[in-house]
Design a protein around this nucleic acid. Structure first.
Lengths: 348, 348
DNA sequence: CTGAAAGCGCTTACAG
DNA sequence: CTGAAAGCGCTTACAG
């Protein structure tokens, strides 16, 4: 096969030459600032026509070099595979496009080294601003952005080094747990699993979880917790361990993330008989997970509102570092059986 | 809150000044070409040290303007929410990073106008190459890439305007259908649903589906098909319609995409009793879908091999437009019950 | 061994 | 109303 022929891209100079004017005039016309500069209407029309005929496309990199704005907004996420972050990305795309910006999204696979690496790559590409989503250690990237004088917002997980937009983890977990409580016959019958001890979101959710237990008179000291991280295999292992106990599976499970729920799904597939009568609450949402064969309550984070809050901040010039915007998540009652269950209100 | 202080980024000129040398030398040293130019080792060492101390980061846009290579690889996908494309993206990221490239990914929401829009945006950012994934009308973007002299590869859905890398839809669908056939009591008991009539992948899969039916003596003329597109709601509607027939649900369902399967999952949740004895084959894979409460065979496209084929092509300079690389997908037997089912081999 | 210089494609005061 | 010119940050023959 032949090598691709060398096609020279056309520039404002080409247009200037064939339109019989200067590159400056072409630039002015093409940028829409020609009226301000009182360029002759006919000249403007001619330039526009020629540009169109020649199929001119501005080189945004050259423009960015001059104007110091690239129209790029960087976005760093843990994973693409994950409905929550995927939804965030699609909403951010929409928001970016509506502002004439182009998002550039990279994933870290939840690895801190990779996070630094990709953030540097985005900054080297001269992104105008940065959205750092789901980072458990946002400070390092926040600092990199500072060095490049780039505005950054921490999304989903907060940090002191930038403005943060997060879901209301505590209230959400509490509401979710309130739905679970009627199923638990004893404090030992309800279990919290997933996430990492000491991690911001996990701890807040655990607080909400415990508040609901306490309000329901199920105590708190005895509530059991498995910090099995954010991987399907580790949460699966934790579930196998639970099932192997003399008392067997707890009846009510609070599952802290969609990834942990993925481990639960495989457990359910292989050992459905151990899950008779079980009910699950998950702080996340996935359409297939919602169809698993047991009652399941899901807390769907308000991706639209989270996105809007990010861009509202980026749209204005103030630096609100250290502050947080907290967005309420939405309860989704996913399985048929669960609908009939009465909600036991916390006695406040 | 205070506005962000203006931080001037440091350039090679800053380094040159404090290292007491010229910007050219700095450039040479920082690019690693200094040995070739026989720069003094001490000079090189000093420049490196100063650059590090000052926290220098190259402006890739400026470099790109000069070298005409940006290190950006554009990627266009239908959706981020969708395990298949998400997996593709994560693999392409890895491949790009290992080559020192930066991927820039945008979604089209399966809208052709949007596809053109985002492709233009990527080209304006001067991507070095383009991966167009899951486009049912790739020609327009292929042409845009030609105009910009950018190499493009069509991934997942082929086109004549570029090199294509696709899964073996026909063989995959046939193998999948072979697993389904033992469950069907009559030709009317097996149904194909999802996708778009006339669309490349759909038609190939339908061909494979029919081949397997024919080989099994289940005829082909009577096999029923619902082209309900790629949306959960439309496939759900198609399922409701199927169930409403006098003969009710077919026992064996071939579901053409993960999106259509999502519609099936909601159907299953609400109307599980109508699906007793049903078995499903899906040309796609999702970890939660694999845990649905019925036997399910899934064809997992070989995302790693697809990605590798793309980059193998982009790594070399030839133009293979019009040619296709076909990658075998992998059968995943997902549900417990299904494992026991004997495979009825096609009599060839 | 190293510096001066041109140039990538664009924008934008400035002068006329 | 419009053009010449400088400059964004970098690379790379070229001359010395």
């Amino acid at each position: 096969m032949a090598k691709r022929p060398k096609v020279r891209k056309i520039t404002i100079y080409d247009i200037a030459r064939t339109a019989g004017t200067s590159s400056a005039t072409v630039s002015l016309v093409l940028n829409g600032t020609w009226e301000k500069y009182r360029i002759n209407v006919d000249t403007a029309a001619k330039v526009s026509r020629v540009a169109k005929e020649m199929g001119y496309r501005a080189n945004l990199r050259a423009r960015g070099l001059r104007t110091n704005r690239t129209g790029l907004v960087g976005m760093v996420i843990p994973h693409h595979r994950n409905r929550f972050f995927a939804g965030l990305v699609e909403n951010c795309e929409r928001a970016a496009h509506s502002r004439g910006l182009c998002p550039i999204v990279v994933s870290t696979q939840r690895d801190h080294e990779t996070e630094i690496y990709v953030a540097r790559a985005l900054l080297a590409q001269q992104v105008d601003s940065m959205i750092l989503a789901g980072s458990s250690q946002p400070d390092a990237v926040n600092r990199l952005c500072d060095e490049s004088a780039i505005r950054c917002v921490n999304l989903d997980l907060p940090g002191q080094g930038a403005y943060s937009v997060v879901s209301d983890n505590r209230a959400g977990a509490r509401a979710l747990t309130e739905r679970l409580v009627p199923f638990a016959r004893s404090p030992a019958d309800i279990h919290f699993m997933g996430g990492i001890e000491g991690e911001h979101a996990t701890e807040l959710r655990l607080t909400g979880f415990r508040e609901a237990l306490e309000a329901a008179g199920l105590g708190t000291a005895t509530a059991e917790v498995s910090f099995c991280g954010y991987r399907p295999d580790t949460s699966r292992a934790a579930l196998d361990a639970l099932a192997a106990r003399p008392e067997g599976m707890p009846r009510a499970l609070f599952i802290n993330s969609i990834t942990a729920l993925e481990g639960f799904a495989t457990f359910l597939r292989d050992r459905l008989h151990l899950c008779r009568g079980c009910v699950v609450a998950c702080f996340d949402w996935d359409p297939f997970a919602a169809c698993l064969p047991l009652p399941i309550f899901m807390m769907r984070q308000d991706v639209e509102a989270l996105t809007e809050a990010c861009f509202d901040y980026l749209d204005q010039p103030e630096d609100w570092r250290g502050q947080s915007k907290v967005i309420s998540p939405k309860l989704v009652v996913a399985a048929g059986d669960a609908k009939a269950v009465p909600v036991r209100r916390a006695a406040v």
